[in-house]
Amino acid sequence: MEERQALVDVGTSAPEWDATQSRILDAADELIVRRGVHGLTIAELARRAGHSRPTVYRSWSDADDVVRAALLRRVAVILDRFPAHAATRSELVDDVLRFTALFRADAVYGRLLAEEPEAFTRYTLQRVGSSQRLILGWLATAIGSAQRGGSVRWGDPNEIAVMLLLIAQSAVLSHGTVSELLSEDSWERELRAALDGLLRP
C-alpha cells in the first residue's frame, strides 16, 4: 500500500479564530444544540459568551453569519482528525465513510440532521459555502494523489470532488428516511460501492 501523503495547502483553509471569537462560537454551538439555528440570536449569543453585542458584530454581520462560521469550525475540527491525505482509492473511500460517521456523530450537525433537516439543507446544500469548499479542497487533494498512483480515474480532481461530496451529502441527509429500508451496515456498504464506482478507473 502506498504511503499516505502529508496534508498540503490547496488554497482552502479554515480561518484562525481568536479567543473571543472562539468563545462566541462555543456559545453558538451550545445554542444550536439546545434550540436549533432559529433559537440563535445575537443578544442571546452575546449573553452566553459573556460579551457585548457590538463585540459579536465586529466579527459577524448577523446570526446567520455566526451559524455559518460555527458550522465551518465544526467541519474543520472533523478534518483535523485526518492528519494525512489518502493516496489510494481504497483509502479515500475509507476516509469519506469515516468523515460521514464523524459528521453524523457531531453534536451540532447531528442536531440539525435529526431536528432541523430543512436548516441542514439550507446551510449545506442550497449553495456551496465555506464549509463545503473546505471539504472539497480536502477531497480534491486526495483524489489528485490517488490519480497519480493509478487507483482513481483521470479527470479534473475538483469536478470529481464535487460529485463525491454530492453523493456523500445526499446519503447523509437521506439516512433517516431510508433507515427502515436499509440497515446501518447496508447503508454503509451501498455508499461505499457508490463512492468506489465513481472513482474507479
Rank of each mutant, 00 (worst) to 15 (best):
R111I: 01
F120S: 00
G197V: 07
R127M: 05
D95R: 08
I160N: 11
E2K: 09
T20V: 12
E184I: 11
T12P: 01
A14I: 04
T20M: 12
Q5W: 10
V172E: 07
G50T: 08
A168T: 02
G149I: 02
D62E: 06
D18A: 03
T55G: 08
S179P: 07
A194K: 07
V108E: 03
R35N: 08
E16H: 09
T55A: 15
T41R: 10
P117W: 04
V162C: 10
V67C: 02
G149C: 03
R58E: 14
E180Y: 12
L195S: 02
R68F: 06
A28E: 02
L102N: 05
L198Y: 03
D94K: 08
G50Y: 09
R192N: 11
G11C: 08
I135A: 13
A63Y: 04
Y123R: 01
E159S: 11
S90V: 13
G129P: 03
S90L: 09
S170E: 12
H85S: 09
D65I: 00
A142E: 09
S22F: 08
T121S: 12
G149Q: 06
W17F: 14
L164E: 11
A63P: 02
L198G: 11
E180N: 13
D62K: 07
E2S: 11
E159P: 00
A49M: 06
F103V: 09
